[in-house]
Design a protein around this nucleic acid. Structure first.
Lengths: 221, 221
DNA sequence: TACCAGATTACGGTTTTCCGTAAAAAATGG
DNA sequence: CCATTTTTTACGGAAAACCGTAATCTGGTA
């Protein structure tokens, strides 16, 4: 059963509406934070006091506003929080809608639920909390639809290096010298062309710009 | 004095938080709509009944969800609403942060206030409503900061469209037909080259891949 | 109407990328 | 060691992007 919840959300209005939604569920033990660092501190304090949180509801993007923060975003908060309290349930509440990013949250960050800020988000929040309370992960239908058609490619280090160079403005024909300088083989221009062609064909792309966009999406570069 | 307010906002959670914020201001006569068309109908009905709204609080982007809508977004709603009730006060509540778009809202759509969905948005909403109640326009400080921010280039809608097409794999030479199909001018290949060159030179880039990476980073695409 | 200034488009030459083929080098196996 | 296969590199023609210049269109003005 979920009774004690921490909300990490920098937008005041979103924070308010989550609180209100929780109250409608009869949950009264609510703490909230506008900064990731603040959220992590509350988790640490609660663990120390022996009254840890049952659930963390967090956004992904936190806008910098001058205050120095060690945690830059929700994903870093999740990692840090789980280090302090491994059994903490995590529900992500975000406007993110890129399937690859959401998939990463479930697979790498092992979150327990994701609710997208969208039309019926308040209702979905209630459903999600209900499910998580029954020790089930909440996986919205529209997400699984998106993720099912996944054509994922696992990039090698050299692949990433090449795409990074492109994203930095390096001409394709100049990449060989960069690779040679780092002692990376193969470094021939033809090999680079071949690697790029292979990546693009696997992912169904035709242009380098698509590769750059895709790698940005999944956080590979 | 503002006593009767209509909220047009498709996100349930955002809608809730605006309602709550208004209640804290002692405003009880609140109507809300999840669709632009619905919002316009309520305005029409209220005018007919001789009990028109004092203020419309509206989002800009409304996500399509199958229901056929004649009004596609908040800007169309504003235009249509003012046609029915020219003296209607309008407050835009949106995540939009492109200075040029916000400027347009003030200049072309003659809105009375803009509050960006961000850290202190609930407090700003209260301030905005207070100001508008005193027949003053509300122009948040951070907007002017954005407008005279250097280093960052403010992308126009066409700029974004072009970069999106590139990131989708469209050949540069094929972009003109896409723009023509959408009725966007200029659509000549030379104009597109010129726009891309301008963006790149302002940002210190040399390749389109850099533009795509940059726009992904700042969330412009 | 005629004219001008700015915006838009068309054009041509150069550079870069794309892509198929083939030579060279390296790894594999007996 | 040689023979075979795989990987890497080199080469060349075609397509696309790049870039400067010139022609055309447009809206405003006298």
């Amino acid at each position: 059963m979920i009774t004690k919840i921490l909300i990490a959300e920098d937008h005041e209005s979103a924070n308010i509406s989550v609180q209100k939604t929780l109250e409608e569920l009869g949950i009264t033990d609510i703490a909230y934070a506008y900064y990731c660092d603040d959220a992590l501190n509350r988790i640490i304090q609660a663990v120390k006091a022996g009254s840890s949180f049952d659930l963390l509801i967090t956004d992904l993007s936190f806008e910098p506003d001058g205050h120095k923060q060690t945690l830059a975003n929700g994903m870093e908060l999740i990692t840090a929080a789980r280090k302090e309290q491994p059994d903490l349930n995590v529900l992500v509440f975000s406007a993110e809608n890129r399937p690859t990013v959401i998939e990463q949250l479930y697979n790498n960050y092992e979150i327990d639920g994701f609710v997208r800020k969208a039309r019926n988000d308040a209702r979905e929040l209630k459903e999600a909390i209900h499910e998580i309370g029954r020790h089930r992960r909440y996986f919205p239908r529209h997400i699984s639809q998106l993720i099912d058609k996944k054509n994922t490619y696992s990039f090698s280090d050299v692949d990433i290096t090449i795409i990074q160079l492109l994203a930095q403005g390096t001409l394709q024909k100049d990449i060989p010298v960069y690779l040679q300088r780092k002692g990376i083989t193969p470094s021939g221009l033809s090999s680079i062309e071949k690697k790029l062609n292979h990546m693009k064909s696997v992912l169904g792309f035709t242009k380098n710009e698509q590769l750059v966009a895709y790698c940005k999406d999944i956080g590979a570069i």
